[in-house]
Design a protein around this nucleic acid. Structure first.
Lengths: 199, 199
DNA sequence: ACCCAAATTGGAACGTGTTCCTATTATGGA
DNA sequence: TCCATAATAGGAACACGTTCCAATTTGGGT
């Protein structure tokens, strides 16, 4: 109970509380989607979610915690809706498929992506729990794309490669979000990096 | 004259102005080194550099511009003091050498690294000029490490590989700065990534 | 040496993230 | 049902990045 972590859905007792948490995250994503990082203002979130400002801070101890948690829920949703349909002969093709689909999804809502990505990158050590959860989701989906048939879990090497690819993807996403890399350059660089790493 | 970019040393007319700029960057690095990103407060920088707050903003239009520019000067200094002494037989060894040395340098001053890295990652499109400069310095030093004897400039492929390696390094640095990756993990992951990319 | 434009100073003011406090409301055990 | 405790509401207050302004200083051209 360190007041340092976001409250997860599981440790919330009553239905009303889970409902509050859901409203907060929904409001966050709506605001982010409309105006990006800057539009996610804590007062605005609390009003739209119909909670007091103090309550918002009890659920999420900072704007960054809030946004990274929102990113986590988005990733969970994405992971649950696409887990099994890998296309492609080679690991490189499948991984590229997964990442291009994710990239396209995110580029369809640039404001939301900007908000979530910048929060992720700006997060400090106090957000490591929330960050770690997102990192795991990403690495998992990549190792599965590398080796979909494997039930025994990925090898150390596969995890290492997946991590590197995830890192590259994140860097490229940051470049795109911050306007220094075009969508097309992201695709090309991703292609280059993946084929270098999975050959 | 869009007031959107940091003033570079070259476009500063008088000696007094160059001196002011130097004082500002020195103050920035000192404060960052002592207390990290949060300690670089614009009022504190202006006081320590003995410039008015408004002047500070005339030289650097935001805290992020200021920190990314400071990062640029650090990179320049590092690049000028180490440019020619590559050790190692293979490109992978030489690149690893360069990045491990840089990593060690940065890990010796964690607060400074935290401040500069987070600024770099948080920067938006308005900082692209400053960002681009840093990116060039990094990519250059990597392509030189890959192929030191080459006077004709790197190939497209070499640049692509260098960029990917730079991205991975930045992501790892962010992980370390935010406390989710240990220094040892950074070394190991770097080793893995480089040997995957340069083989 | 003088004048004008630009640069600098010093500080007030504003916006937004964060903290804090008191009054009120919900919750769970006796 | 009643009480003790926690949770929430409502909003003031504070910190720091940023903007703005009036007064002063600096520097270059004549």
């Amino acid at each position: 109970m360190t007041a340092m972590n976001s409250l997860t859905n599981e440790e919330l007792g009553s239905t009303a509380q889970r409902e509050r948490r859901r409203r907060i995250l929904t409001a966050t994503i709506e605001l982010a989607s409309q105006g990006g990082f800057d539009a996610v203002q804590m007062r605005a979130v609390s009003e739209r979610a119909d909670v007091a400002l103090g309550t918002l801070y009890r659920y999420f101890p900072s704007k960054i915690h809030l946004l990274v948690s929102a990113l986590g829920t988005q990733f969970e949703r994405a992971a649950s809706t696409q887990s099994t349909d890998f296309v492609g002969e080679t690991p490189a093709d499948r991984v590229l498929g997964v990442l291009l689909r994710n990239t396209k999804l995110m580029q369809r809502d640039p404001n939301l992506t900007e908000a979530l990505t910048r929060a992720f990158m700006f997060a400090d050590a106090s957000v490591s729990a929330e960050i770690h959860q997102v990192g795991m989701l990403l690495t998992d989906s990549l190792t599965k794309a590398i080796d979909p048939a494997n039930d025994a879990g990925p090898t150390e090497e596969q995890v290492a490669v997946a991590r590197v690819i995830g890192d590259v993807w994140l860097s490229l996403l940051v470049g795109w979000v911050t306007g220094r890399t075009s969508a097309d350059e992201v695709r090309k660089s991703l292609d280059v990096a993946i084929h270098l790493l999975l050959r």
